[in-house]
Design a protein around this nucleic acid. Structure first.
Lengths: 144, 144
DNA sequence: CAGAATCCCATTGGATACTG
DNA sequence: CAGTATCCAATGGGATTCTG
């Protein structure tokens, strides 16, 4: 179902960037992924769906502060990329269930790794921010 | 310059989301990290700096399509969060070197994991996109 | 209930010009 | 060379309204 990526790209990479190993296009791919899942809601939705399928309104309640517009757009994007499935039950009122695909589930691992990193270091990060802001606003050598 | 996560939001999360284990705030932290590094350039810069310190102009050339404005903003953000250091050599013309901190280097691991995922699956993703777009525009049942 | 459509504001980010 | 400042276009995203 997968196993045939990286076919035919890398035009001139072979001659110009072989002093490092694999990073030249890798960073672009990472960047692409990040612009996909790096939006405000995609990861939240994936996280919520990792516990099992959920209806539209459940997701909306789960995220809390999302607008139905953005939830729709987010789900469409995830569906388009093959990360979630959308199952419509044409009753009245209609019922739509969203679930992670295997691909969607596989995304949870690296995202969890990032979350792990965040939990471990977000203390130092906030400290660094505070420190940086102090330096910037208070004056460099003569505080009042 | 950045988005603080809503400290003190979560109105009724305490009663509604305790059926799952640890994910309630974890997903918010991940979301916070993503809004930090999920911008258009931060990861690229971190990737470039992983090979060693670089000057401003080297980074600019390395990224290629970034404006000096965005490079400055990106570097300021990374510096503020303690991911890179900024070393000014007040010569004429001035020289400024940027380097990853240990924290910045540690970020490379989860980012690389994400990049790995991206490389493995971005073929299926693009296929899924193409498929999805066909379904949407070409008509659902009577292709020419 | 799920979502499409519209309106409108806030943020992002590029291009350019100027400074030290 | 490194950085700041200003202007402006594109996008993101919330609120609201309407429909099946």
């Amino acid at each position: 179902m997968d196993t045939q990526e990286g076919t035919g790209m890398i035009p001139a990479a072979a001659e110009a960037t072989r002093d490092e190993l694999a990073t030249p296009d890798r960073c672009r791919v990472v960047s692409g992924v990040l612009s996909r899942i790096g939006d405000k809601w995609s990861v939240l939705v994936v996280m919520l769906l990792s516990h099992g399928p959920k209806r539209f309104s459940e997701l909306k309640r789960g995220v809390g502060s999302i607008s139905q517009r953005m939830l729709t757009l987010t789900l469409r994007g995830l569906e388009r990329d093959g990360l979630v499935t959308r199952t419509v039950t044409p009753t009245i009122p209609p019922r739509v269930d969203y679930a992670l695909t295997p691909l969607g589930h596989s995304l949870r691992e690296p995202v969890a790794a990032l979350g792990d990193w965040a939990l471990r270091h977000h203390g130092s990060i906030e400290a660094s921010r505070h420190d940086f802001d102090q330096r910037g606003s208070g004056g460099a050598d003569a505080p009042a």
